[in-house]
Design a protein around this nucleic acid. Structure first.
Lengths: 318, 318
DNA sequence: GCTCGTGACTAGAGCGCTCTAGTCGAGTCG
DNA sequence: CGACTCGACTAGAGCGCTCTAGTCACGAGC
């Protein structure tokens, strides 16, 4: 519980000036290797760690801090956060997180990031209206991940949902299926792109599209299973949760998956990887999204743009 | 993209000193209501927001900042974070998050929190060895949530697992079941307490305990389902994931839940609430845990202690 | 009338850093 | 040999705040 050592303490112990300690800890040129080692040794002995806040205050413009607003309720946001950390580190940036929860609104999360003087903001699947996002982007670069939108001044990084949907359908076609249904995401983000791509891919293959209303949840999948025509042998679901609900309900009603019905999900979420599920799915490339987002976040004065990342097919057992 | 206004700008606009602006924004005594309004108006007009960093640097001892290290992969950590925000706000504290991920170790997360000069640390279900936690607690109050451990200097807030397990078994007994099995968590945290309480409660009720090896995952539940004796009519599972694996496998093999077999989980996780699952379970009281953790985190110079929160039975459909 | 208290406000020194503008000594070169 | 350059290092201002120690005006109390 003793007060933390400061640069002054390290400087005194290493018998150099405070400024030199700063040089050493910033890895800046202007210190001999010998002194560098001595300063570092003194710092270690005292358990010194630079004060991040003071560091930011002192450095004139660049804070090398990026704020990330994410929703604790979405596992995919967790995957993105995980991918963002190494991507930020590679560029010499630090991440500050702010959570969106059931009771903490996105605007509050974003404002608290601004209080920390983040250089730029990365918002994961934000639900704020475009105007609010534009307002945020007015004061610093703002990158939106995983939401398709046109808000002026905002960078957008997202997965190519049309390509993903096409990938799913082509996979099922290549397996020899002809009666392929799509369980729709209805109004969920991305649902329209996935539905349209499904229809187009089916038409191009000379097959009749069958669309079943669904949604982004397991219960939507459960519901969709009840409406599934008996002649259907393969289903491309809106997302993994929906596919899993469908899977369980189909199995419970005696239909064998994948023997009788093939199912493909979308997201490559954690549940899809579980032993007893092993859902084939379309993976959003979290690392690709993260890298692109950081690239945009760190380039100041770049005109707002949209980066679309291709998804990948993950073949598992359904 | 224009530089953010500072206190100086607000002071100039309101025609007062910088110090007075500080007084107003801190809600400290020493300014007339009239001036207060004028300063606030000037701040609003400029879009001024105090710099959190500078604020903390300036304020001598207390930073009113609490660092939270959580694991993005655990939904329950999300619930805890959600509960921590309002609890912190109520005490006038701010939260800084740092994520533990597959590739970012707990120690890195904790260190980055220290760089931000957090007054205290709250670690959710840490996996670090007790010695590492004691070392952390040496420099500031440290609270561990959801892990039973004896590390000197560290506060612990956790759920009463014995009581939870007892609650689960008593619930099943009260439903008239006599052949109740426990699917064990083996080496998972809390498994020993839950197992012991199960055995004790069964003995006290004059029933023979049946323990089936399992684990904390869905696949463990799937495995346990295969080993489940046919005469068992109720199962208290180690946790929800295990219970859900068990549930699906049992249903797939034709046994009806809850008609033929009752299942109770543990955690009240999000999947347990899903429409087609509706798992009865034992809820860890996230708000209670959060409040207790903040209480401990904010009281400096309090001797390390352990707070045990009672869990609740959530009756659903299994 | 003079002290004293009080509320409203300000000056200025930090907080722990970064960064610019130096100093200082050793080597280079014409 | 004096004018340079160059690497190693230091002094000190400044980042945007907070906070202590004032100042100043005004009214109460003796």
């Amino acid at each position: 519980m003793n007060p933390r050592p400061t640069m002054e303490d390290v400087a005194a112990r290493a018998r150099v000036s405070r400024a030199l300690v700063s040089i050493v800890y910033r890895n800046a040129p202007g210190a001999s290797d010998e002194t560098r080692a001595r300063v570092l040794a003194a710092g270690d002995a005292l358990g010194y760690r630079p004060d991040h806040r003071a560091r930011l205050l002192g450095s004139r413009q660049r804070t090398r801090l990026i704020g990330v607003a994410f929703d604790v309720r979405y596992p995919f946001h967790g995957d993105l956060v995980e991918a963002l950390y190494p991507a930020a580190e590679a560029l010499g940036y630090n991440l500050t997180l702010s959570a969106v929860t059931g009771s903490r609104r996105e605007s509050a999360a974003a404002q608290s990031l601004l209080d920390y003087r983040c250089e730029s903001l990365i918002l994961l699947g934000p639900t704020s209206p475009p105007a609010a996002l534009t307002a945020l982007a007015d004061s610093q670069p703002t990158v939106v991940i995983a939401r398709k939108l046109r808000a002026s001044g905002v960078h957008v990084v997202r997965t190519d949902d049309a390509a993903g949907s096409r990938l799913a359908v082509e996979h099922l076609l290549s397996l020899g299926h002809t009666q392929i249904a799509h369980v729709d995401g209805v109004r969920a983000p991305g649902a329209a792109e996935r539905r349209t791509a499904y229809v187009q891919t089916m038409r191009r293959a000379g097959r009749a599209p069958v669309i079943i209303p669904g949604g982004p949840t397991e219960s939507a999948g459960t519901e969709a299973a009840r409406r599934l025509p008996r002649n259907i042998t393969a289903v491309a679901a809106f997302n993994d949760a929906c596919a899993i609900g469908l899977l369980h309900t189909l199995r419970a009603s005696g239909r064998r998956v994948p023997e009788e019905v093939s199912i493909i999900g979308y997201d490559d979420s954690t549940p899809s990887r579980l032993d007893h599920i092993q859902l084939s799915t379309i993976a959003q490339n979290a690392h690709g999204l993260a890298a692109a987002a950081l690239d945009l976040a760190t380039c100041v004065d770049r005109s707002p743009q949209e980066v679309v990342i291709s998804p990948d097919l993950v073949r598992r057992k359904t």
